[in-house]
Amino acid sequence: MKQAESTPTLFDRLRIVLVETSRPGNIGSVARAMKTMGFSELVLVNPRFDGALMHEESVAFASGAVDILERTRVVGSMEEALDGIHFAAAVSARLREFSPPVMAPRELAQQLAAGEARAALIFGNERFGLPNEIVERCNVLVNIPANPEYSSLNLAQAAQVLVYECRMAALDGQRAASDVGFQGDAASVAQIDGMYAHLEEALVQLGFLDANNPRKLMPRLKRMFSRAALETEEVNILRGIARQIIVKCGRKE
């Protein structure tokens, strides 16, 4: 009899994504933080200097976590960085008017550990943080509840807080999938992005959305759907509705 495959733990499912990092030392420090807490998948999106992974400062700050750097991928887009990811969390000290739901690190870690989705923690540039277009496509915005009078954390410190909380949650063994809300297969970020594009086209055809004056309709819809933890079948249903709207409005796909 074939033995059932074990469910991957959060240590296997979590990806750390650094976007347009400016300091090589921060990349090395994040790799060190990850290895200390038992995580290993690191992806860089357009680092702002050449030779980011084997830069002298990266290696020095990694301090024994060079194996993490050696396995790190450097990509040119968020689409590549989030390939295969079902749940994306933007980490930012700055709250946004049309951000996805806001969570604290511990709450997020417990949710991720209880589920089975492949997840990504996304950290922005040291000076500018994450742009709104990246934050809006994520499922949640993670905000570290620091001292409001001085809430400044550098990139590596913020990453250390998040991976620590994820390690604690993973070790606690909180596996209640119902806490995450996934009953079927979780929809990937790419699938959800495709649904948004399809839905936007349908709303324009319907006359509900003015393409020349969209205001904040799509960010509000993204915020609403991000709370639903969409499954693949649910995304397919919504795209089917969008398809029928386009057909009924008289324009073939």
Rank of each mutant, 00 (worst) to 15 (best):
Q3A: 13
A4R: 11
P8G: 09
T9E: 06
L10T: 08
D12T: 06
V17P: 05
V17A: 03
V19F: 12
I27R: 01
I27Y: 01
R32Q: 00
R32M: 00
M34N: 13
K35L: 01
F39H: 05
E41N: 14
H55S: 15
F61W: 05
A62H: 10
A62C: 08
S63G: 04
D67A: 10
L69A: 15
L69E: 10
R73H: 12
R73F: 02
M78R: 08
E80F: 07
L82T: 09
I85C: 01
R94K: 07
S99G: 15
A104P: 05
A109Y: 02
Q110V: 13
L112S: 09
L112I: 02
A113T: 03
G115N: 00
R118Y: 01
A120V: 01
F123T: 00
F123G: 04
G129K: 08
P131S: 04
E133W: 10
E133Q: 11
E133G: 05
V135C: 05
C138S: 06
P145H: 00
E149N: 11
A156W: 08
A159V: 09
V161K: 08
V163H: 09
Y164I: 09
C166M: 02
C166L: 02
G173Q: 01
Q174Y: 12
V180L: 12
A187T: 02
A187V: 01
A190K: 13
Q191Y: 00
D193R: 14
Y196L: 08
A197R: 15
L199W: 12
A202L: 07
L203I: 06
A211G: 10
A211M: 06
A211N: 09
N213E: 15
N213H: 15
P214Q: 04
R215Y: 10
L217K: 03
P219N: 03
P219Q: 05
R220H: 13
L221A: 08
M224T: 11
S226H: 11
R227T: 02
E233S: 13
I245P: 01
I245R: 03
K252T: 11
E253W: 12
